[in-house]
């Protein structure tokens, strides 16, 4: 599981995840991910290179969004693949964490 962070726009942090958000992958990424989330009020989590998400991955993503919301900021998800999108839909995450098909749309929401 790889976590990379950049700033596509002032005051917006993009966290690009790469790999599988299964039990092992989530465990490996969690500390780094949480630190990256806490580094900025506005966060885009780029899922374009995430091949798999299970409920532990969902838990990590929701915890990140809750954390930003408490801090007065916002976290959104971008570019999930079709099956990940289905998982975000099935679990109801898409109702509480904005999900955008493209990065530009995500950037525009802040």
């Amino acid at each position: 599981m790889k976590v990379s962070v950049d700033q596509p726009k002032a005051n917006i942090t993009r966290i690009a995840l790469e790999g599988r958000l299964d039990v092992a992958g989530t465990q490996a990424a969690e500390t780094e991910f949480n630190a990256a989330v806490a580094s900025s009020l506005n966060v885009i989590v780029d899922l374009s290179k995430v091949a798999f998400v299970s409920s532990v991955g969902i838990r990590m993503l929701v915890a990140g969004a809750q954390d930003r919301s408490k801090a007065g900021g916002k976290m959104v998800l971008a570019q999930p693949d079709e099956l990940t999108k289905r998982i975000l839909h099935t679990t109801g995450i898409e109702q509480i964490v904005p999900v955008y098909g493209g990065l530009d749309e995500a950037l525009a929401c802040f």
Partner: peptide, 24 residues
């Protein structure tokens, strides 16, 4: 099945795993 998700604050992860199994 887990209760419908309404707000970010009251989202509970419990039961989501089995819910996914049911759906997939």
């Amino acid at each position: 099945p887990p209760a419908a998700v309404t707000t970010l604050e009251n989202f509970a992860i419990g039961g989501q795993g089995v819910h996914l199994v049911r759906e997939f």
